[in-house]
């Protein structure tokens, strides 16, 4: 792994020899990963390959069967409220009676903080977070009235309102059209100046332009650093695959900045 980026210093996520099984079925095996501060990493791989599971392990929502996972130098479960999390949109009830502002305020909940003493400060922070992602005009809209892309922005504001150092996103562009996706990743790129980002996606558009590194997850994990992604740009498409890894297809009419990952060395 090359450590040639200046802004990358400490590993914000450290995963060592991690195994995880669900109902006796191995989902992740022998996973090792170090995410450095300032990274913008995409986790790609087939459905059921363990991307979302790995994200939930990072969040401390699941516990590994074997191995170690540390976030910001501490066990994942003890720092989860310092992580900004943007869940998959599909799980959320769109008819729920709630405004964009109230969704963002939900990010202000903290362990043991029942009666917030500075509701006014919370509100200012929430408004500022909405402004930061260009959603200030939609503050008092019901969440169900927003488009998929707008809704994802609100979820990002909810994740950002506590100013986390780490932002985890689970397939954030699943319900956004391709124009919206471009805007969305531009926004993430902008946020990445201050925040380390891990985004789960099975969308190659992500890799092509915006991210700094790629982790291919299919039970095992293969990490590709930025230098490696850009290195083979002129070669035609190689899916990041050995026999078991991500079967990814890329269809294009040219003029796209192709990025190709090296074969996993095993």
């Amino acid at each position: 792994m090359h450590l040639n980026d200046i802004e990358m210093c400490d590993p914000i996520i450290q995963i060592a020899d991690l195994d995880f099984a669900y109902h006796g079925q191995s989902v992740l095996q022998d996973v090792n990963l170090e995410v450095l501060e300032g990274d913008f990493i995409a986790m790609i791989g087939p459905n059921g390959g363990g991307k979302t599971t790995l994200l939930k392990l990072m969040l401390g929502l699941l516990k590994p069967d074997r191995g170690r996972i540390r976030v910001m130098g501490k066990p994942a479960t003890s720092v989860s409220h310092h992580i900004g999390y943007v869940p998959q949109d599909v799980h959320i009830n769109r008819r729920f009676p709630i405004t964009a502002l109230d969704v963002v305020l939900m990010g202000k909940l903290a362990p043991g903080k029942r009666w917030s003493k500075n509701a006014e400060q919370d509100r200012r922070d929430a408004l500022e977070a909405l402004d930061r992602i260009d959603m200030a005009d939609y503050t008092h809209r019901r969440i169900g009235e927003l488009s998929g892309g707008q809704r994802q922005r609100v979820f990002i504001a909810r994740a950002l309102v506590t100013r986390p150092r780490l932002l985890l996103l689970d397939e954030p562009t699943a319900s956004i059209d391709s124009k919206g996706q471009t805007d969305f990743y531009l926004l993430l790129k902008r946020l990445n100046r201050e925040v380390t980002i891990v985004v789960v996606s099975h969308d190659l558009l992500v890799i092509s332009t915006y991210v700094k590194s790629v982790a291919c997850v299919n039970r095992r994990l293969h990490y590709h650093h930025q230098a490696e992604i850009t290195g083979d740009m002129l070669e035609t498409m190689y899916p990041c695959t050995v026999e078991e890894a991500c079967p990814v297809e890329l269809v294009t009419h040219g003029h796209l900045p192709h990025r190709v990952l090296k074969h996993h060395k095993e």
């Binding site: 799980h91 939900m106 909940l109």
Partner: peptide, 17 residues
């Protein structure tokens, strides 16, 4: 507030403690 978070997005509520 907790019931609201639980009802709207259980997983996020869990992460927020």
């Amino acid at each position: 507030k907790d019931l609201l978070a639980l009802s709207y997005d259980e997983e996020f509520a869990r992460i927020r403690g």
